[in-house]
Every structure is written in structure tokens, then in C-alpha cells.
């Protein structure tokens, strides 16, 4: 009974924040079945650690921490993960009907540019774009603040260079 109540509470929480988990899955895997597998793994890891979540940190920070740990553990286990450049352009399409073409293009450009980054840099840029502080990012990706700051500088330069031609 208690377990069922806790599960219902957790499902409500996951439902409210599933957008974040889907976004993480979409940045690390292009194939729908891989994304679904990862989504389930993240959901299970969140469920396992939910009883120990003390609500002292932001809920999104906790989700990011568990999700990113799960992604990195999954990637380490995989011996032959397909590279993103082995996929066709269609794999990078952002799903959305009834949206102005220019806006879809801009979003797809950003997605494509982030997808080209290393696994760690993807996590850092996601957290940066979601306005987490350098301390929070350092804590989630288990790096020093200085290292995070340096990496963000490099990532910004790289992405801004890639995104520049589309903005002219």
C-alpha cells in the first residue's frame, strides 16, 4: 500500500518532468528504440533513488544528476555506439507540425550542433542552457568549477562558430 502510494507520487513527478528526460535521451541517441530504452533506464534509476531524495536540491538538478549518470554508465557499457555522422539528415529532424519553417530550421540547427559535441560537453551545454550555475554543473558532472568554466568557454566558441552561418 505504502509502496503503491509512493509509486503514484513518483509517477506524477516523472510525468511533470518527463520533458527534461526526453530531451536528454534525444541528445544522446538518434534511434527511437534507443531513446525509449534510455528513458526507461533513467526512469528506473530515478525510481530507485526517489526514496532517498531529500528535496534539498532542486528537483531538476536531481533529475539531471541521475539521468546523466545513467547515460554515462550506459555509454560505457556499449562497445560499438553508432557515431552521429553515420545517420542521415532525417534523423536530426525536430518533430513539430504547424511551426514556421525558419523556427524549425533554427531549432534543428541548434540540435545538430549540440549533437556533434562530446558526451560530457553535451551534458554541460544542456545544463548551461537550462541556466544552472557553474557550481551546480560542476557538481552534476563531477568536475571542478574551473574545469567547467574552461569547457563552457570552448563549447560556446565551438557552437557559436557552427551556428553563425545560419544566423546571417
Amino acid at each position: 500500500m505504502i509502496e503503491k502510494t509512493l509509486q503514484n507520487e513518483f509517477v506524477q513527478l516523472l510525468a511533470a518532468h518527463q520533458k527534461l528526460v526526453h530531451t536528454i535521451c534525444s541528445l544522446y541517441y538518434l534511434l527511437p528504440e534507443d531513446r525509449q530504452d534510455l528513458f526507461q533506464e533513467i526512469a528506473l534509476q530515478l525510481w530507485k533513488s526517489y526514496p532517498t531524495f531529500n528535496h534539498q536540491s532542486k528537483i531538476t538538478t536531481w533529475i539531471y544528476r541521475v539521468a546523466i549518470n545513467t547515460v554515462f554508465a550506459k555509454i560505457r557499457k556499449e562497445k560499438s555506439r553508432p557515431k552521429s555522422d553515420s545517420f542521415s539528415e532525417a534523423a536530426f529532424q525536430v518533430p513539430q507540425p504547424e511551426t514556421p519553417f525558419e523556427q524549425v530550421e533554427a531549432i534543428a540547427d541548434l540540435y545538430r550542433a549540440i549533437h556533434q559535441l562530446s558526451d560530457v560537453d553535451k551534458a554541460i551545454v544542456m545544463l548551461y542552457l537550462d541556466e544552472h550555475s557553474y557550481e551546480e554543473i560542476a557538481n552534476i558532472v563531477k568536475m571542478s568549477r574551473t574545469n567547467v568554466s574552461t569547457r563552457i568557454g570552448r563549447i560556446k566558441a565551438r557552437l557559436e562558430k557552427r551556428l553563425k552561418p545560419q544566423t546571417q
Binding site: Q7, L14, A15, K19, L20, H22, T23, L44, Q96, I107
Partner: peptide, 20 residues
């Protein structure tokens, strides 16, 4: 991008329960 991805892959409460 987050809104579009979240909307496209949204799961119902029952589907989320089934995952667990």
C-alpha cells in the same frame, strides 16, 4: 526544442507506471 521533444514523446501516467 525541449517543448517540442517533450510533446512528441509524452507518455501517459499509465505508460510511465508500466515502465516501472
Amino acid at each position: 526544442y525541449k517543448d517540442r521533444t517533450g510533446e512528441a514523446y509524452r507518455l501517459s501516467d499509465d505508460q510511465l507506471s508500466d515502465l516501472l
